Simulated scan of single mutants.
Amino acid sequence: MLKAYLDLMSQPSRALYIFLKYTKIPHTIHPVALRKGEHLQPEFTKINPFKVVPVIDDDGFLLPESVAILQYLCNKHNIHSLYPKDLQQRAKIEAFTHWQHLNLRFAGGGLFQSLLIQPLATGKPIDEARVQLSRKVLKASLGKIEQIYLKDTPFLNSDSLSIADILGVCEVMQVQMGLGMDVPTHYPKVAKWIELVRESVGASIFDDAHSFILKAGEKVKMMEVPVPKL
């Protein structure tokens, strides 16, 4: 049976979790607590020498990288609804998954790391320069999703749910839910898309995947972390 190693604090891990629950591919979840450094332990580095999550073990076939994992599982299990066989439709989905790494993911992850993870882990002051750079890239990224990827379609470059939506929504929720940033007010199309993805995969699956990041958001409020406005 497929083994999935992940941490729900991680955006790509949540995407894999949602994908597996939604598609009902038989699997077992193996939590890897990044905050405890479990990804650095020898038993995990044997599974993924890159020391990151998620990673899967499919009967001995080890594969890291969330985009590659979702593409592989769609191909293996013929899940064409999320990853179409049509080359042009597939290319549109892949265009987003390639773009988001150095845009949406870079920005949201950078803010979360700079404002919460690194100060707690190191005790050092917040890196304001990195925060402002990440904020700038985040605003630009959300703007492109609003104006380009959702211009003519309810989902990202598509009329139906795809792996691009599952990956992308987890990145946005990192700042909306994890940091309390007001995405809906400034990006109404993005807000509508988030709810559509939530309804499409199932509210219980979506909410369960994000329960841990919600707790992080509560901690941000309690600590009065200076989260910049959009």
Score class of each variant (00 low, 15 high):
residue 164 A to W: 00
residue 181 M to Q: 04
residue 168 G to Y: 03
residue 145 I to T: 06
residue 141 S to Y: 01
residue 171 E to F: 05
residue 183 V to A: 01
residue 169 V to I: 06
residue 143 G to E: 05
residue 160 S to D: 15
residue 182 D to T: 07
residue 174 Q to T: 10
residue 134 S to A: 08
residue 138 L to E: 08
residue 131 V to K: 07
residue 174 Q to Y: 06
residue 152 D to W: 10
residue 176 Q to Y: 14
residue 142 L to Q: 01
residue 148 I to L: 15
residue 156 L to D: 00
residue 145 I to K: 04
residue 155 F to L: 07
residue 189 K to G: 08
residue 139 K to D: 13
residue 181 M to P: 01
residue 173 M to F: 13
residue 154 P to R: 04
residue 187 Y to V: 02
residue 167 L to M: 11
residue 141 S to M: 02
residue 171 E to C: 03
residue 185 T to V: 09
residue 183 V to F: 02
residue 151 K to R: 15
residue 137 V to H: 09
residue 183 V to M: 02
residue 148 I to H: 15
residue 164 A to S: 00
residue 155 F to M: 11
residue 182 D to N: 12
residue 134 S to I: 15
residue 146 E to Y: 05
residue 168 G to V: 07
residue 175 V to I: 14
residue 166 I to W: 04
residue 140 A to N: 11
residue 136 K to Y: 14
residue 143 G to S: 09
residue 166 I to M: 10
residue 187 Y to E: 01
residue 169 V to Y: 00
residue 146 E to P: 03
residue 161 L to K: 03
residue 146 E to W: 04
residue 161 L to H: 06
residue 157 N to Y: 07
residue 139 K to W: 11
residue 176 Q to C: 14
residue 168 G to D: 06
residue 189 K to C: 08
residue 150 L to T: 02
residue 140 A to W: 14
residue 148 I to D: 12
residue 181 M to S: 03
residue 181 M to H: 02
residue 172 V to W: 00
residue 187 Y to N: 03
residue 139 K to L: 15
residue 141 S to L: 08
residue 150 L to D: 02
residue 187 Y to A: 02
residue 132 Q to P: 11
residue 141 S to H: 04
residue 173 M to G: 09
residue 157 N to S: 13
residue 156 L to N: 00
residue 175 V to W: 02
residue 140 A to G: 10
residue 166 I to P: 01
residue 160 S to F: 15
residue 175 V to A: 07
residue 182 D to Q: 08
residue 155 F to G: 06
residue 134 S to R: 11
residue 143 G to L: 06
residue 187 Y to L: 03
residue 149 Y to Q: 03
residue 166 I to Y: 05
residue 171 E to M: 03
residue 132 Q to S: 13
residue 142 L to V: 04
residue 149 Y to S: 02
residue 169 V to H: 00
